[in-house]
Write a protein that binds this DNA or RNA. Structure first.
Length: 113
DNA sequence: AGCGTGACGAACT
DNA sequence: TAGTTCGCCACGC
């Protein structure tokens, strides 16, 4: 059984749009914790992969990081590539522009508050 | 109850 | 520029 913390992490993963990626650090920030280690551990224990897009979480430097499902990192890269995220030598191509930030509105809000 | 581990990150050398 | 060290907090033993 998962803990409250874990479920919160997995729920956050669902917010990541296709073709975009996020970092463990951004995820931790969204969760309100500095424990990126704990977040990583939580993501790795996600039992709903790849239904929950845990493969869209990469390291802060644009590297792939790790992956527990399928063929490991190879599967993670394949999934990302299918979504339009190119990976070169283990690193995300155009990482900065593909990095998703939680709460970042892509559409202008309908009418201010 | 305490200790070690871990899908990380930033600083230091 | 690359490799190493310390810090971080949740979880299992």
């Amino acid at each position: 059984m998962a803990t409250e913390f874990q479920r919160r992490v997995w729920e956050a993963l669902r917010l990541i749009p296709e073709g975009r990626v996020t970092s463990y650090g951004a995820l931790a920030e969204y969760l309100g914790t500095r424990a990126v280690r704990a977040v990583g551990t939580a993501v790795g224990k996600n039992p709903y992969a790849p239904e929950v897009p845990c493969h869209r979480v990469v390291r802060a430097d644009g590297r792939i990081g790790r992956y527990s499902g399928g063929e490991g990192v190879a599967t993670k890269i394949a999934l990302l590539k299918k979504e339009g995220v190119e990976v070169r030598d283990g690193k995300i191509v155009g990482f900065a522009s593909k990095l998703y930030r939680f709460g970042d509105q892509q559409c202008t809000r309908p009418s201010g508050s």
